[in-house]
Design a protein around this nucleic acid. Structure first.
Lengths: 222, 222
DNA sequence: CACCGAACTTATGTATACAAATAAAGCAAA
DNA sequence: TTTGCTTTATTTGTATACATAAGTTCGGTG
């Protein structure tokens, strides 16, 4: 077998994708031996993958010291989205102050592309937020935000597929944020991004609130 | 031997302390076998400890795929302190809005204790910032800030031991932040905490700039 | 004398075996 | 029948052995 960190990396990626796209729903138990057999490797690389998932906050220790995909109560979910929203707003503030002319142009192009009705809006959305992260010119903040992105992904993924009107309002919010950045109005950009994040949270809560018992959250409590 | 995660935890803590308090300076190579012999265990728990340190950003992969204590260039160090300062300011804003009467009283007591000339100011400082983190009532933000705390610790540790006048100005800043929080003036609390963090950064840069070649940073470039 | 290659060195990645802990189940006694 | 103890099963934590990759050194060849 070829060795350099490869199995552990692959297994980590595979488990992470599985968690993020819902194949391992919150509460799912991840035991080492079955996973090792499934991947055709020993427990060692599986253990390393699980440890990394734990460090990333994607799994936690459940009863019988088992590793389970993280469940969120409504309070924690709210704190998670609040933190992410504030971080995004902060990054947007920096972006308004620091983006180069080239970066502004690229952001403009992304917003334009997102207004094409045939566009893959989930991908456009990622590119928009990615451009802001890069434009803030602080890799540490960008890294924190990437972590939050990952941690909230299991609850955000259904957002755009389910609500066409959310896409339209998201487009308008992106356009407004773009304008504020082009005007280098950091306070306005910050304010708009907070609103944008809050709108996303509201949509997530609506969707989760109507999904049944595999979602461990109560919209009313938020 | 008794088993529950114990050796890996102990070794992780020991290495972390060593990095934070300077016994393992930036650039130091951490190999598995010597560490395992030193701690009297096998490579397995040492590997786990190193993986966790890597996830926490305390070590990185160097040449020959060795694990080395993280070195910082001046740009990364600046980004790190900037991110931490903004996070602390954010947490302070929330604390101004959300602390209970009991929490306000406790914060007041901490500031008072810090003005006692015989106090251990490093510990008071930790308690002050810890009270704000708790008072923000967002465990996710508090966790992010705790991570940043850890990551900046190797560069902050000498601050209070070396500069008596920094302690005095820090006391005054804490007092001003306390007043803003008691007044529930979130904007003022936020503004003051940003200044407080920036002052800390300036002190760190001064100290690092005068310490010689084991610090991989140039104060002038910041 | 210089340069390229092969063997050796050393460290990490993986597999497997064993130890210990916790929860569950079964049995006995009140 | 219920409760408590003991045993057992399952899973994680650790130790150790082996495979592999990257660096280094030494030797051969041009």
């Amino acid at each position: 077998m070829q060795m350099n960190k490869r199995y552990a990396d692959e297994i980590h990626s595979a488990l992470l994708s599985g968690i993020v796209d819902g194949r391992f729903p919150p509460g799912e138990v991840l035991n080492e031996i079955p996973l090792a057999e499934e991947f055709g490797v020993s427990r060692t690389p599986v253990r390393e993958a699980l440890q990394r998932l734990k460090a990333e906050g994607m799994v936690e220790r459940g009863a019988r010291r088992a590793v389970v995909v993280r469940k969120m109560d409504s309070k924690t979910l709210h704190a998670l989205f609040e933190a992410m929203g504030e971080l995004e707003a902060l990054v947007t503030r920096f972006a308004a102050l620091r983006m180069s002319e080239l970066e502004r142009q690229a952001l403009h192009d992304i917003v334009e592309a997102g207004e094409d009705p045939g566009a893959d809006y989930a991908q456009i959305n990622d590119r928009f937020h990615g451009a802001l992260r890069a434009g803030a010119h602080n890799p540490v903040l960008a890294g924190l935000l990437a972590d939050m992105d990952l941690r909230t992904m299991p609850w955000r993924r259904a957002q755009f597929r389910k609500r066409a009107e959310r896409i339209r309002s998201s487009q308008a919010e992106h356009r407004a944020i773009l304008e504020a950045i082009l005007n280098q109005d950091a306070n306005e950009a910050h304010r708009l991004m907070r609103g944008h994040a809050a709108a996303s949270l509201r949509t997530v809560i609506e969707i989760l609130g109507s999904q049944g018992p595999d979602v461990q959250t109560k919209a009313t409590a938020l």
